[in-house]
């Protein structure tokens, strides 16, 4: 299946990935080839088949509502690229 430039740009934006012009061209071609290959699935007979989202037949996995210790703030924030007091500092949302 051919995949349009608009689609790639749309998907790149949805997944918040900046692509250079060169990357965009290269990836377009590669994805088109992969999607061609994937199109093979159209031959599979899936008439009355139900989808498998979870491979093990598990259900009702629940836990009791009982508190456990949280991480101390200093540990929670230890990996933060930027922090202020006990907050994560992140770039501003500009719509």
């Amino acid at each position: 299946m051919a995949i349009s430039r608009e689609t790639i740009e749309y998907v790149a934006n949805l997944s918040r990935i900046q692509l250079s012009e060169e990357e965009l061209k290269k990836i377009s071609g590669q994805l088109a080839a992969i999607l061609d290959f994937i199109d093979k699935l159209k031959n599979a007979d899936i008439g009355n088949v139900s989808p498998t989202s979870h491979i093990l037949p598990l259900n009702n996995i629940l836990r009791e509502d009982s508190p456990k210790e949280s991480l101390p703030a200093v540990q929670a924030l230890a990996n933060a690229p930027q922090k202020k007091n006990d907050f994560y500092a992140v770039p501003k949302v500009i719509e």
Partner: peptide, 21 residues
């Protein structure tokens, strides 16, 4: 919260795109 953050970008969406890019 962790890992790489592309420095010097004020706008959040732009920061995400460039960091991930």
């Amino acid at each position: 919260q962790y890992g790489l953050r592309k420095a010097g970008i004020q706008n959040l969406i732009e920061s995400y795109k460039q960091t991930r890019g």
